[in-house]
Write a protein that binds this DNA or RNA. Structure first.
Length: 658
RNA sequence: GCCCUCGUAGCUCAGCAGGAUAGAGCGUCGGUUUCCUAAACCGAAGGUCGUGGGUUCGAAUCCCGCCGAGGGUACCA
């Protein structure tokens, strides 16, 4: 039941007399821009009139003549240059509502042709704790899975974990040299993370020490260059000024880089213990890489260690996913594909796609300067190779029709090359999409970091959200008063905590999902947990009020759902709410079509707004006759179900009290 | 150098298979409680949609130039 589709179908029939491709023009029906124009508007007569050399208004008149929507709409009206305005008949709207209320799927029809869709998202490195950078992929990916699944597709969520890269060499090196046995015995994962950080820190130290002199020299020459150019560049010469500007920004970058490296060196130098370690391990970076190579080469000891570490790391990740309510159907990490990589390169070579260039095996895609490197000079494979092996596996073993990669926009070029290569390689029947997203920024407009400059750990982020939410929940509950003004808090400590979890995590997820995923967004605690405005809380609150009304009205959702007969919409606020409810499937489709959960958040926000406006204007329980009361209760109950279902598709939970 | 994003109200952002007077939240100002959760509702002020051109009956939306911000760019993923 999708009213927009029904209208489009009717228009397509009528349009058949006027054009070769009626669906193209039927698609130009959309919700009315202004409610005064009605509920929907058709914009097709202007372009079609132009194409056919007919006056658009005349064409509109003839089209309306031909059009049969008498069972759905009031008589269509022609306005302006040739818009056709449509207003749904109340009886039709009421029928739709009745059907929706009786339907477990809320009137959303499952896809006629379900597709096998693989959604590749989250994909953290197991060696390091998850951080804020993983948030978007995880939250957006999960929502897309839920949406597509609800729409009837066969969705496989796959966590393509980084479990085979250089970071494991670092952990192994750390384990062999710096292990704190007690700490490892107590809780292995933090100890492994510490080892990773330590080895990384020591490697960076040596790298910085080595490169700093050259960088300082470079800075000096650049500065001299800048000075001389500043002296000579003609003020009116635009390109000279532009070059100057570029040089200045390059200098800034260089200074920042040097400062950050100096900081790394200083940190170690300031700590006698760390300095001693650094001195004792001058070749740590190379040795760690060697450990990785040994692991890949099948070295017994390193394989044993890997087998020992991996389950523990995965378990730590699982804690975060459990808390976020996220499940994966598969978690086939990079290691899973390791023994297929040689074959992939061989096959690409046989097909003449991979060629040697500069010692590496490369696929060159026309129109791209950079090659797609599938095997490095040293013989090692790259993530390009793994990604190709993964595509082959998903195509052949999972029968994929569609593969979505929910990954950072910065990897756009990689995916462009990957998809082009895969298509040439024989997988052109699969629809590939890079569902890209922008960076999470701090208030300073730089990638979100802690005050000391470290990346923000995901678990601590979640903890903080819940703790902030707990304060808000407590404050709200404490402020509840009865008619006499006496405090009447109604939530016990345990309930408050449960609600804080729902509100806090919902706030984080919603803040992410309600932005257009393509744009960067600024992370702001106060906004995401604000008790006012376009937040998860607003919707969760609307839901809690629905439950509150049913409780006060002493009816259950089941009882209301069992009532048959149309749901009347006499008041304007009732009608607006009813129309919004009927657009649920439109909203889901829009969100799924281009993988934009923000289309759904927008819908839910509008719905929650319509619902609270309805509350303000239409009393449900008080001062109403029995029929009105029942009718409004059904409207409220249906709204609650749609909100809960919509939020669920965003991965956000609700509570029946707040 | 080449390539890719982005520039919309004081702030944060929607809108971008071209359509009627450009929307929302926050903030500001004003109003609403004998009434089902005021975590609410109603109203007002606030915009040369970076800029200059072009296509069109019609452009925030499509094309080109310019300005500004960010990102990527051969062996890290």
């Amino acid at each position: 039941m999708n009213i927009l589709h029904q209208l489009q179908q009717r228009f397509a029939l009528a349009l058949a007399d006027f054009t070769e491709d009626p669906t193209e023009f039927a698609a130009m029906i959309r919700p009315a821009a202004d409610t005064r124009f009605g509920d929907f508007q058709a914009n097709c007569c202007m372009p079609l009139g132009k194409r056919n050399g007919v006056n658009p208004r005349e064409l509109a008149a003839r089209l309306v003549d031909k059009l049969d929507v008498s069972d759905l709409c009031e008589p269509p009206e022609i306005a302006g240059p040739g818009f056709i305005n449509l207003k749904l008949q109340d009886e039709f709207l009421q029928q739709q509502l009745q059907h929706m209320a009786a339907d477990q799927r809320l009137g959303v029809e499952p896809a006629g042709e379900p597709r096998n869709i693989i959604v590749d998202f989250s994909s953290p490195n197991v060696a390091k704790p998850m951080h804020v950078g993983h948030l978007r992929s995880t939250v957006i990916g999960d929502s897309i899975c839920r949406l597509l699944r609800f729409l009837g597709h066969n969705v496989t969520s796959d966590n393509h974990i980084g479990d085979w890269g250089t970071q494991f060499g670092m952990i192994i090196y750390g384990y062999k040299n710096f292990l704190n046995t007690d700490a490892y015995a107590t809780d292995p994962v933090p100890e492994l993370a510490r080892l990773y950080r330590l080895v990384n820190q020591l490697s960076d130290y040596h790298a910085a020490k080595e490169s700093l002199p050259a960088q300082r020299e470079r800075l000096a020459t650049r500065q001299a260059e800048l000075q001389s150019q500043e002296a000579t560049a003609p003020a009116g010469d635009k390109s000279a000024q532009k070059a100057l500007k570029k040089l200045r920004s390059e200098l800034e970058g260089l200074k920042e880089e040097i400062a950050s490296q100096e900081k790394k060196v200083a940190t170690i130098d300031a700590d006698a213990e760390l300095q001693q370690l650094a001195n004792a391990h001058p070749n740590i970076a190379r040795l760690a890489r060697d450990e990785t190579a040994k692991l890949h080469g099948g070295d017994q000891e390193n394989r044993t260690l890997w087998n020992q570490f991996l389950p523990q790391c995965l378990q730590a990740l699982q804690r975060v996913y459990d808390r976020l309510g996220i499940q994966f159907d598969l978690a086939l990490g990079e290691s899973y594909y390791d023994d297929m990589l040689g074959e992939v390169v061989g096959d690409l070579q046989n097909k003449g796609m991979a060629k040697e260039s500069g010692g590496a095996q490369c696929v060159f895609i026309e129109g791209n300067e950079a090659p797609f490197i599938v095997q490095k000079t040293d013989g090692a494979y790259t993530y390009a190779t793994t990604d190709l092996a993964t595509i082959r596996y998903r195509a052949e073993k999972l029968n994929a029709d569609e593969i979505l990669y929910v990954v950072d926009a910065r990897q756009g070029e990689h995916f462009k090359l990957l998809f082009a290569t895969a298509e040439q390689w024989g997988y052109s029947r699969i629809k590939f999409a890079h569902v890209s997203f922008g960076t999470v920024m701090g208030q300073d407009r730089r990638p979100y970091k802690t005050r000391s400059g470290d990346t923000v750990g995901l678990e601590s982020l979640l903890d903080e959200a819940v703790s902030r939410a707990a304060d808000i929940v407590a404050a709200n509950d404490d402020s509840k008063i009865d008619d006499a003004g006496n405090p009447t808090p109604e939530l016990d400590a345990e309930t408050r905590q449960r609600i804080a979890e729902i509100v806090g995590l919902g706030g984080i997820k919603y803040a992410d999902l309600h932005h257009n995923r393509e744009s960067d967004y600024v992370f702001d605690w106060d906004k995401m947990l604000a008790t006012t405005g376009d937040t998860a809380t607003y919707m969760q609150y609307a839901y809690a009020r629905v439950c509150g009304i049913l409780r006060k009205g002493d009816v259950t959702a089941e009882e209301l759902q069992a009532i048959d007969g149309p749901i009347r919409t006499t008041e304007p606020a009732e009608r607006a709410l009813a129309l919004r409810l009927c657009r649920f499937s439109e909203a889901l489709e829009a969100a799924a079509n281009d993988y934009r959960p923000n289309q759904l958040t927008q819908y839910l926000y509008d719905l929650a707004g319509d619902l609270t406006t309805f509350y303000a204007n239409c009393p449900v329980l008080k001062g109403t006759d029995a029929a009105t009361r029942e009718n409004r209760l059904r409207l409220v109950e249906l709204s609650g179900r749609v909100i809960a279902q919509g939020l669920d598709l965003l991965g956000i939970a609700v509570s029946d009290r707040m």
